[in-house]
């Protein structure tokens, strides 16, 4: 299922409500989608729900995918990330309806500690070169879908400072990433 043609055929079948094709899609991408959902939500029950929602969106709207605009995996992971962030926002709006000490502890850990998204091989090396605070702000923006205001309120850092540090952090991250990509692609 790695070639674009295979992906197109798979998604064509899913758009035609072919259950076996859908199952093959889950086999191929279920783990990546669940992992990303878990990364955003830090809760296995919510991550499972978001994974279900993501796949059911794909089941209903498989024809939305446009192969000219990018790889299937990117499309799926983007849907999963936005679905997870939407869910995270819902949970934040009603945080005390079902208090869950484990969730709260995990959240405190995320907000209080260093960013978690640098677990990947490449990014781990890059993030080590960013100040902790910048990587934390990027994490909050990207994986938790926070706005500048959300971040300022959560961290108690002035809004202007959040904007400056975040922009500078993103620019630095891009530079490091480009260096890394160029180094890797040099024979």
């Amino acid at each position: 299922m790695n070639s674009p043609l295979d992906e197109i055929e798979l998604m064509r079948k899913i758009a035609g409500q072919n259950q076996q094709a859908f199952h093959a899609l889950y086999q191929q991408y279920g783990k990546a989608i669940y992992s990303l959902a878990y990364r955003v939500l830090q809760n296995s029950t919510l991550a499972e729900e978001v994974t279900q929602d993501t796949f059911l969106k794909v089941w209903r709207q498989a024809a939305h995918w446009d192969p000219d605009k990018g790889k299937l995996k990117n499309w799926l992971l983007t849907i999963a990330q936005f679905t997870a962030i939407d869910r995270l926002r819902q949970e934040r709006r009603q945080p005390h309806l079902y208090p869950d000490p484990i969730e709260e502890a995990e959240e405190t850990h995320i907000l209080g500690g260093e960013a978690h998204w640098q677990d990947g091989t490449v990014l781990k090396l890059l993030i080590a070169r960013l100040p902790d605070e910048q990587s934390r702000l990027i994490d909050m923006a990207f994986f938790q879908g926070m706005t500048h205001n959300d971040i300022a309120n959560t961290t108690q850092i002035p809004l202007g400072t959040v904007k400056t540090r975040l922009r500078s952090g993103l620019q630095k991250l891009r530079e490091l990433w480009l260096e890394s990509v160029n180094r890797t692609s040099t024979p």
Partner: peptide, 23 residues
């Protein structure tokens, strides 16, 4: 890359069955 490089975790065992049942 940031999306792809999150730590990989096996989904719960019953998730596949639930999804297939749902569709």
């Amino acid at each position: 890359e940031m999306r792809e490089e999150v730590p990989q975790i096996e989904p719960p065992v019953g998730l596949e069955a639930k999804l297939m049942a749902a569709i």
